[in-house]
Structure formats: C-alpha cells, structure tokens
C-alpha cells in the first residue's frame, strides 16, 4: 500500500464542488429527513465558496443532487434575476455543466430563497429551500438543546401560547413569513421564510421539498403527499396575505403573491413576485405562444 492508494487522482475541483465524502454524508442525512418528515437532521455542513446565510445549505443539497442532465432553476424572493439567484445559478452551472432555466415547468431542480413558484410542481421535481433558521421554536426557546428536547416530547405548548397571545393582543396571528407548520401530524417545522401564501402549496404536494440551513447545519424534508398544516386555532382560520385582488402593473397577472412598489405620488403599485410567471404573462399578452402551467392559486384562491 502506498500513500497514493489512500487518496484520489488530483483534480482542481470535485464534480459539483463537494467531494465524495461530503456528498455521502448529505445523502445519508437527506434519506433520514425524508423518513422522518419535518424533523431537523443535523449535518456537518461543509464550507462552500459562498458566505454562510447566502444559501449555503441549499447549495450543498443542490451540489449533491445535480448531474450534467439536471436542469436547474434558481430564484430569490421569487425572482430569477436577483443578483444572488444569478450568482448561485452561475456557480451551480459552473461546477456541474448542468443546464439552467428560468421556466418552472422545465426545471428538474429548483433552489429557492423565500418563495415557492406559482405554477404547480410535478412529482419528478425537487424544490430546495434555503433556510436561515431551521428552528421554529427559536422565538420561544433560543437554546437549541432545549428546543430539540421539546421536539422530542412534541412539546409545542409555548408555541401555541405565543400564537394565542398574538391573537389576544392584535386580533390576529402576527407571524408574517416562516409560518410554523405541523408536518405529518408530528413535527412542527419552519417552512423557511416563504410567505403564508406559499405554505398551503406544501400540503400534500406532488413534489419533494428539501429544506436546508447551512449555517445552522440542519436539514429537513417534506416528502410528496405529506400533510403540512399551519398551526391555527379552530375558530381563527389561517390567513394568507391579502393579495388575491392585486393586479400586476407590468404583466396584468392577477391573483398571485405580489411585490409592493411604493410610488412617489401616492399609494403603491404591485408586480407579480414570481418573476418568470410575470415574463410569461407579458409574452402571452403580446400574443406569443407560451406555456403557463396550472397554478396553485386560481383567481386569488388556493385550489384544493
């Protein structure tokens, strides 16, 4: 046996950046995450050539999953053209040779920060969500060891109490994005900072969702056809953002989650947050043949 037999042939960079041992660890942890939906699985979380907090968790999942035939879409705040989405897309394509797309329908793998696309994802698609803070209990328990024990005991009393106090104080649950949700009736998870608008899209979805927090070194998963129920009281129903009636001033699209654009001379206008849906809507309005997939929301209402 020689020193050489211990190592591998030199290459300037591993395929997909991560080396084989990092990928194996992530694969093992992803399988457990799928087997126990909503449970946060600790993983080593290697450093990647991007700063922590900028999608390094999602990036490690994507780097592990992709191959030269994986078509990748990357969005940030719903937009393909956001600088960080562009940066991540360029990196993923650069380390893998994988083709990229902005079209949700053409993507095999979608890495996203803070949004789920409006077009319904298929059962062959994987959605990778970047997660800043994987622990839904953090607002009531910042200590991770104690929070972990609370999950073990399914001890979500303080979580419920917090929601109840908000209703008493403000007349409604004040949680904006990252709405805590019960997965498969057992684990409360954060769906990542997606708006409340997007959480119902996870419930009994056809696609697989992997949520990964690189800095916090935790990943969790929502397999297809899995119950995802926002924590609500029977008499105070879950309420998504009141965007159903807004019309996109650029594309004319209506009934989707919107970006609010404040105007100099008065109130705001709106533009559709899913940028590719906006682009498609513009093309369609121009009379071009363009395929827009079925959307989760129709006329501003979530379909069953």
């Amino acid at each position: 046996m020689s020193l050489k037999s211990l190592t591998k042939a030199w290459e300037p960079m591993s395929y997909g950046f991560l080396d084989a041992s990092a990928k194996r660890e992530i694969r093992r942890k992803m399988l457990k995450a799928i087997a126990v939906p909503g449970c946060q699985i600790p993983y080593a979380s290697r450093e990647v050539p991007m700063a922590r907090g900028w999608g390094t968790g999602g990036l490690q999942i994507s780097c592990t999953l992709l191959n030269p035939k994986t078509t990748i879409k990357v969005i940030d705040q719903g937009a393909d053209d956001s600088v960080n989405a562009a940066s991540i897309r360029r990196f993923l394509a650069g380390v893998s040779g994988a083709p990229t797309t902005t079209d949700t329908l053409k993507a095999d793998l979608i890495q996203s920060r803070h949004r789920i696309p409006e077009e319904i994802l298929r059962e062959d698609q994987v959605l990778v969500l970047q997660v800043p803070n994987p622990e839904p209990l953090r607002p009531v328990q910042p200590n991770m060891s104690i929070a972990r024990q609370m999950h073990a005991d399914a001890d979500y009393g303080r979580m419920w109490l917090q929601l109840y106090e908000q209703i008493v104080r403000s007349g409604r649950v004040m949680q904006g994005a990252s709405y805590p949700s019960l997965v498969n009736g057992r684990f409360v998870m954060t769906p990542s900072p997606i708006p409340r608008w997007d959480v119902p899209k996870m419930h009994m979805a056809k696609h697989l969702t992997i949520l990964s927090a690189g800095r916090e070194k935790r990943l969790h998963a929502v397999p297809p056809f899995t119950k995802v129920e926002p924590l609500v009281f029977d008499d105070v129903p879950y309420k998504v953002e009141d965007h159903g009636a807004h019309v996109c001033t650029r594309s004319g699209a209506k009934g989707y989650f919107m970006n609010e654009i404040p105007q100099d001379d008065g109130p705001s206008t709106f533009e559709v947050s899913d940028s590719e849906l906006g682009v498609k809507s513009i093309h369609r309005a121009d009379g071009e043949a363009v395929q827009i997939g079925e959307t989760w929301y129709k006329n501003g209402e979530m379909t069953e």
């Binding site: 300037p12 395929y15 997909g16 084989a20 191959n67 030269p68 650069g94 380390v95 893998s96 040779g97």
Partner: peptide, 12 residues
C-alpha cells in the same frame, strides 16, 4: 467545469 467521473455518475 469539472467532468463527473464514472463513480460520481453512478453514485449520483
């Protein structure tokens, strides 16, 4: 852009 080895392709 690195090319995947046979090992990488198969394990992926």
């Amino acid at each position: 852009t690195p090319a995947p080895s046979d090992f990488e392709t198969q394990t992926n």
